[in-house]
């Protein structure tokens, strides 16, 4: 045959395989990995977008964070949401999945659809809905007034404690059903005979749940945990649209603070914003690695 077709079928297939994944690979390198490197170098620079210079000392943007009160508030807010909201949400989600996984339960599909429904709403939309519900002149206050539980309207979003409560409530509303879907999928993979065996061994409902269901669900639990940490560290839409970081910046999240520094009115502090965003990246990475390690210790 002609010399041109000197490639063997095997070689041809090998080349085809690489060609299939080249576009996706290049795009991830260009739009994720390279920007991450660029964020790191930018984090050592200062000045406006057009002409940025290296900081002196080089770590200026990082030491600045230590003195930044709003950054510290945003950090503690993130961890507050992480410590309170994530465990409640995951426990409720497992609990609901367990209830819904019962063979004898009627209207299963209806219940599942209802609990899952908040996932169809965008974060901006639900933030605005919750903002309206908890407005000083809003439904929640008027209901509480009618029930004579309060004598004057509560300024839910204008007080730090209650504003944080509304954000946590909103997050629970939006994400519990989402996590439940993962647990339901995981539970459906557990053979019914496993439960029957536990029953024969004399395990009651609670013991079965704790010693059979939870260990079998462990990979899914770890995954939802990582996703929730990841999501909480990057909270943005709620902070912007529900409380606008207020009152007085006390509910602001890290992403919101970073955004304000980079794209807020009148500032384009890319260097400092990049430094903070790199801190977020490091935290996401470390927490994800810890989680993976914890998941590996047994089995």
């Amino acid at each position: 045959m002609e010399k041109k077709r000197s490639l063997t079928i095997g070689q041809k297939q090998k080349i085809a395989g690489w060609l299939f994944l080249i576009i996706a690979t290049v795009m991830i390198f260009v739009f994720s990995f390279w920007p991450m490197v660029s964020a790191l170098t930018t984090s050592f620079k200062t000045g406006s977008a057009a002409n940025m210079k290296w900081c002196s000392p080089l770590t200026f943007n990082y030491t600045r964070m230590v003195k930044d009160k709003i950054f510290k508030t945003s950090l503690s807010n993130t961890f507050l949401y992480l410590i309170i909201q994530v465990p409640i949400m995951l426990i409720v989600a497992i609990f609901l999945a367990q209830l819904l996984n019962n063979r004898d339960l009627k209207f299963k599909g209806l219940f599942r659809t209802c609990v899952f429904l908040p996932c169809s709403i965008s974060l901006v939309s639900y933030s605005l809905i919750f903002k309206s519900l908890f407005a000083t002149q809003g439904l929640i206050n008027s209901l509480l007034m009618k029930a004579h539980l309060i004598s004057e309207n509560i300024n839910w979003l204008g007080t730090t404690g209650t504003a944080r409560f509304v954000i946590i409530l909103g997050l629970l509303w939006r994400w519990t059903g989402y996590n439940m879907v993962f647990y339901l999928a995981g539970l459906q993979n557990i053979e019914y005979s496993v439960y029957e065996a536990a029953k024969i061994d004399g395990a009651n409902g609670w013991k079965t749940f704790w010693y059979v269901t939870v260990p079998l669900l462990r990979p899914v639990i770890i995954m939802t945990f990582i996703m929730s940490i990841n999501g909480t560290l990057q909270l943005f839409d709620e902070s912007v649209n529900l409380t606008n970081g207020g009152p007085a910046g006390t509910t602001i999240t890290m992403s919101h603070h970073i955004y304000n520094n980079a794209f807020g009115t009148g500032v384009a502090n890319f260097g400092y914003a990049s430094a903070m965003s790199f801190v977020v990246f490091v935290m996401v990475a470390i927490l994800a690695l810890i989680n993976l390690k914890v998941g590996d210790t047994r089995d």
Partner: peptide
């Protein structure tokens, strides 16, 4: 593991 908020500035530029 890369958060959107970390890449947004380089991507914007």
């Amino acid at each position: 593991m890369i958060p959107g908020v970390a890449t947004m500035i380089p991507l914007f530029r």
